[in-house]
Structures are given as C-alpha cells and as structure tokens.
Simulated assay, not measured.
Amino acid sequence: MRKVLAFLLPALLFLTACGGASTPADFEQESGKSAGASEILESVEVTDAGPDTAPEVEFDAPLDITDTAVRAVTEGDGEVIEAGQNLQFHLVFLNADDGSVLQNSYEAGEPQSLQLTDQLKEVDPELYEVLVGTKVGSQIAYTAPLEIPEGQETATPNQLLVLKVISAETPPAPPKKLSSEEVADLEEAGQLPTVTLDDEGVPSIEFPDNEAPADLVVKVIEEGTGEEITEADTIAANYTGWSWQGEQFDSSFERGEPSEFPLSGVIPGWTQGLSGLKEGAKVLLVIPSVMAYGDEATQGPAGPLAFYVEVVEKVPAE
C-alpha cells in the first residue's frame, strides 16, 4: 500500500476477527465524504462499539482493490476536522481477502497520531481529502493496491484499514522572532535577563522571576559595524550560555578564544537570532526550548536558554 501506511500502522498484536455490522440503511444515513475509487468500499459496514473497543467491520470479501479508495463509512458528531490539525485515532487493520482482523490499536489503549500536513496531502491526497472536512468520531475506511516490486512475490494479503478519529487539535503557533519594539516592551516590564560585563568583557547574568518568553528574543546590546551575517555564513563568536534557571553550561570566554561555527549547523535560535546582525554586534538571545534543544534534551541543556553573544567576524569561505 502507499507510504502513508507507514504513518498509520503501529506495531500491534495480531487478534482474531470481529463480527457484526450496521444495517445498510444506517450506512446510507451516516456515511460521509469519499475519494478515489470509493465504490470499492460500498460493501464496508461498521458498527461503533464505543471509544475503547474495536468496532465491528463487515464487507463482501474479497475486495477488488484496483486503486486507492477512502470513505467515511460513518460520520461522527464532533467538530469538523481542519487542515493542519493533529489527529488522534484508533484503527483496525483487516485482511481484505477474507475479512479477518490482523491488528488493532484499541486493545493496547494507545491511540495513534497523524498531522494533516502538506506532506500527507502530497503522499496520499485521497486520505487527506476525506479527513479534512470530516467530523471527529468518524469511522473511515481506507485501502490501496499492494506495491510489489516487479519480479517479486509476497504472501502479504490485500488490506483494509478502518480508523476512528477520536480528537483533532490545532497545534500551537510556532515561536517567532520578536520585533525590536516587542523586545523593548519585555525589557521595560522587567521580564528579560540582565547581562553585566566585567572589566575584561566577561559576562554575568541575572534572571527575572518569571517564565521565559515563548518567542525568540534578540536584544541588541551593541550594534555591529562590519559585514552583515546571513544564515549561510560561518562566523567566529564569543558567547556564554545559561539555562533559564541561571546555570551556566558553556562559555568561550573560559576557553580564551572565539568559537567558529556555520549558522546553518546550530540550533534554530542561533540561526534566526544572529542572521541579519553585523560583525561586532553584542546581543542577548533568549531562546524557547523548541528553538534550542527541547524540553527533554539529550544533546544539550533542556528548556529555554539565554546566551550572551559577541559576533567577532564572518569567517571567509575556504
């Protein structure tokens, strides 16, 4: 089947087949959107057995799967699903040749996740078309021909997937780089760290008693006068980094020399925060965790971070 099944199919236990179905009349009243060769799924009937129990699925086996087919067999009564949302769903995976159940996610009690992205729209436009505009609670049947490389044989049966959308949530907006006016407002409100330089130019920092800003803060302490830095450049810089709890975790000042690195190869908070500055600039960066190493980091400090950075120079390309 299409690549989208790699998104949808977890490692599940094999189970025995289910029985029973809704009546054809119920099917006609409750069915919703469809896409592709949906006539393949006309005989598919689903009886919802509740939020934690796999539904009963019945159809005229074997299905003649000649193309991708998607159909909302029963329509839910929840909110309308929108593009870009994160879906949680349960699924039942059936042998389309004999109707037996191969796998399901209900028994493990672990819903699966799928985001309605442009990538999904490109990989499987039929599934995307049916999901967007359908309601939460819908039971959606999906099938497509097996993709078997030429000259190979497979014992894998044709497959029918029935998924139930149990929730749809709009993800939070990604962090943005604050404007200089927005940074000034945060500073005036006392919500930004204060950086102090000693006689040798080594920084120390004092943190306010509030949560870190949700967006990227670039507070220019001193404007640069050299060449402008772009995301494609490699730069030399002096810096010190702290967690939002005030713990210092790295400092080039202690090593006694600037560090060189390509802006395309560092955390997004550095890439976006330093590009557009000029050589010689001195700045405070306050970086949300999603633009740093994450809330549960394994390769760096977790949570929001603060950096004092001096852009020494743009390193000439070799």
Rank of each mutant, 00 (worst) to 15 (best):
residue 122 E to W: 03
residue 291 M to K: 03
residue 41 L to K: 10
residue 91 L to Y: 04
residue 127 L to C: 09
residue 251 S to K: 01
residue 164 K to C: 14
residue 212 A to G: 06
residue 51 P to R: 13
residue 184 A to S: 13
residue 49 A to E: 07
residue 187 E to H: 12
residue 77 D to Y: 05
residue 112 Q to P: 02
residue 230 T to V: 08
residue 2 R to N: 13
residue 162 V to H: 02
residue 232 A to W: 05
residue 101 V to P: 00
residue 221 I to K: 00
residue 13 L to K: 11
residue 150 E to Y: 13
residue 86 N to C: 08
residue 279 E to R: 01
residue 82 E to D: 08
residue 70 V to K: 04
residue 101 V to L: 12
residue 189 A to C: 07
residue 93 F to P: 00
residue 310 E to F: 01
residue 38 S to V: 14
residue 231 E to A: 12
residue 45 E to D: 04
residue 187 E to M: 08
residue 315 V to P: 06
residue 200 E to A: 00
residue 223 E to N: 13
residue 53 T to V: 13
residue 23 T to R: 10
residue 111 P to A: 04
residue 58 E to W: 12
residue 25 A to L: 09
residue 123 V to L: 13
residue 300 G to K: 09
residue 30 E to C: 10
residue 65 I to W: 01
residue 118 D to F: 03
residue 43 S to R: 05
residue 126 E to F: 05
residue 292 A to V: 11
residue 277 L to S: 01
residue 281 A to N: 03
residue 257 E to D: 13
residue 132 V to P: 05
residue 101 V to G: 00
residue 269 G to M: 02
residue 49 A to F: 05
residue 67 D to Y: 06
residue 226 G to F: 07
residue 14 F to R: 15
residue 248 Q to T: 15
residue 184 A to C: 07
residue 60 D to V: 08
residue 243 S to E: 12
residue 1 M to F: 08
residue 61 A to H: 09
residue 311 V to N: 02
residue 312 V to A: 09
residue 159 Q to G: 04
residue 243 S to W: 00
residue 183 V to R: 00
residue 276 G to P: 04
residue 164 K to V: 08
residue 116 L to K: 10
residue 16 T to I: 08
residue 111 P to F: 08
residue 113 S to R: 14
residue 272 Q to L: 13
residue 234 T to K: 11
residue 215 D to E: 12
residue 61 A to W: 04
residue 258 P to L: 02
residue 151 G to S: 07
residue 173 A to I: 10
residue 222 E to S: 14
residue 191 Q to F: 04
residue 105 S to T: 14
residue 222 E to C: 09
residue 294 G to S: 07
residue 156 T to S: 09
residue 271 T to N: 15
residue 31 S to A: 11
residue 317 A to G: 05
